[in-house]
């Protein structure tokens, strides 16, 4: 299956802004994090199609995963 991975703030340093990834069926968010060398505890917000999930969330074909370190403002 194909998913879109979007990185934000410091996660972009040395990586990318947005890329598509090919993953085996049944993959979890964890399978996206590992090759990027991002530890789950570094992720403050993980959105899959805009919904807040954790690293054990099972992905589906066509999902958009947005990963953020701690960010805030107002």
């Amino acid at each position: 299956m194909r998913v879109t991975v979007k990185l934000f703030a410091t996660f972009r340093d040395g990586r990318f802004k947005v890329e598509e990834r090919e993953l085996p069926e049944g993959s979890k968010v964890m399978s996206v994090l590992e090759p990027l060398n991002i530890k789950p505890e570094e992720v403050a917000i993980c959105l899959v199609n805009g919904q807040n999930v954790d690293e054990q969330h099972v992905l589906n074909d066509g999902d958009t995963i947005a990963l953020f370190p701690p960010v805030g403002g107002g």
Binding site: A44, P69, P70, G72, G74
Partner: peptide, 20 residues
């Protein structure tokens, strides 16, 4: 130590919110 006040806001300012 807080990720928002110690890193996110100092690095990017409040406009870091645009994407989230």
């Amino acid at each position: 130590e807080n990720g928002v006040t110690g890193q996110g806001l100092p690095t990017y300012g409040t406009a870091v919110l645009v994407n989230i």
